[in-house]
Design a protein around this nucleic acid. Structure first.
Lengths: 225, 225
DNA sequence: GCCCGTATTGCACAAAGTTCAAGTCGGTGT
DNA sequence: ACACCGACTTGAACTTTGTGCAATACGGGC
């Protein structure tokens, strides 16, 4: 029986957990080693570098996205499902948005997603490059939305790390932003509206609003054929 | 006459230059100091930390975006101008996309942009929260697009840094991605199409395609009122 | 039981952010 | 003119973190 040894899989798995818990800047080889019960440098036998590991971990999480059959549920439902799944995945793993502008992700996990995304838009009626463009439109829109979530997640972690109540410190940041906003008429109006009316989860609203608008625009384009 | 001393402004300016040239991971306090003709730690008198400096620099570049009057050119032209300006700005300063998921940018530079963006969509006919949502939709779409540019810029820099011809190494990366794509029917078809047909700047096409689709979707929503 | 490929360890170095005590400069009040 | 004070700068040092390297341990096959 072979010795109980580290696995590439196990390392990637643990890296994802650590990234979820501590964020991209919280991942370091020593704490990863501690979590794996081995020396930090043991990881280098299985993985070329930390960058490499991040890419590996960043490809893995795409598997969490379901791939609904557009023939069964209709292309718009399938596309909506994939978009919201993607948004959810990026919110669960905010470090991926931090990694994406720095590394290219072209692994099998993302390929699985991309391929099915194309299938959905081809099922909708887009042909050739137009399917690519339609898919890319929705895809980039979701990425842009997830960016905001990632930023607040990162901020929360940073604040709670150097001590203190995160809630209070976030309110500080908000107040600071509000002060800047006061110099601009329309932003000031928003701040005041948020103070008087009890303001609920606007970001989600904005995501669904945008998604509907994009699908409407795409459908209009389909109708022109 | 006061001594010729470092300025916050001058530091931010130089930081932007360095970030443009070397990327986010290429910015370090020692080379910044060298470029400023002073000790690295002199910067800390004017700026709290490196993170703080990145936020400052990241707010500055929003000033490059023009703010066209929607009353003069029409809302759709104004919105298009702002979206393409934003995309151009983010492409010129790819490090901003790397910084955005990690920090919140709520400075005056971004506020100036955001306020006018709201003005444009209010001029279009959106009222209250709908103006926010319409603006956010286009905004996040542009961010998502810029993300890809940022990733390739970052890759190019990394490759050319550790020696060798960037062109050749990029081709290596592409080939690697193509190999993965071979396992998926639709992606494989794309790769083969790129090999036979001479494939030109698709990303820009995708950006304009998506922007048109979004505006179409938004206009349809306006027509429902 | 020896040997070799696989896997792990501890050490050490370099890069980079930041702190701190000490210094330098120039304007100000007397 | 001179001392002083606050604004600004410096250099050394400490810390964290990624990673290379040589030594070592483990275990299966001859």
């Amino acid at each position: 029986m072979p010795r109980d040894t580290l696995t590439r899989e196990q390392i990637i798995q643990t890296a994802v957990e650590l990234l979820d818990a501590e964020g991209l800047e919280g991942l370091n080889m020593r704490s990863l080693g501690r979590r794996l019960g081995s020396a930090a440098t043991a990881v280098y036998w299985h993985v070329k570098s930390k960058d490499n590991l991040v890419v590996l971990a960043g490809d893995r999480v795409w598997d969490e996205i379901k791939l609904p059959d557009p023939g069964a549920v209709g292309w718009r439902a399938a596309a909506t499902s994939m978009a919201t799944d993607l948004y959810g995945m990026l919110t669960r793993h905010p470090w991926l948005m931090q990694a994406m502008p720095s590394y290219l992700f072209h692994g099998p996990g993302k390929a699985r997603h991309d391929d099915h995304s194309l299938a959905v838009y081809e099922a909708a009626g887009f042909v050739g490059a137009e399917a690519d463009q339609a898919a890319a439109t929705v895809f980039t829109f979701v990425l842009g939305n997830a960016l905001g979530e990632s930023a607040t997640a990162s901020l929360t972690r940073r604040l709670s790390r150097d001590g203190g109540d995160p809630e209070e410190l976030i309110r500080d940041t908000m107040a600071q932003a509000a002060e800047v906003a006061m110099g601009f008429p329309r932003l000031r109006a928003r701040v005041q509206a948020m103070e008087t009316i009890d303001y609920g989860g606007a970001p989600d609203d904005s995501f669904e609003f945008g998604l509907r608008a994009i699908f409407d625009g795409l459908e209009a384009r389909l109708a022109l054929r």
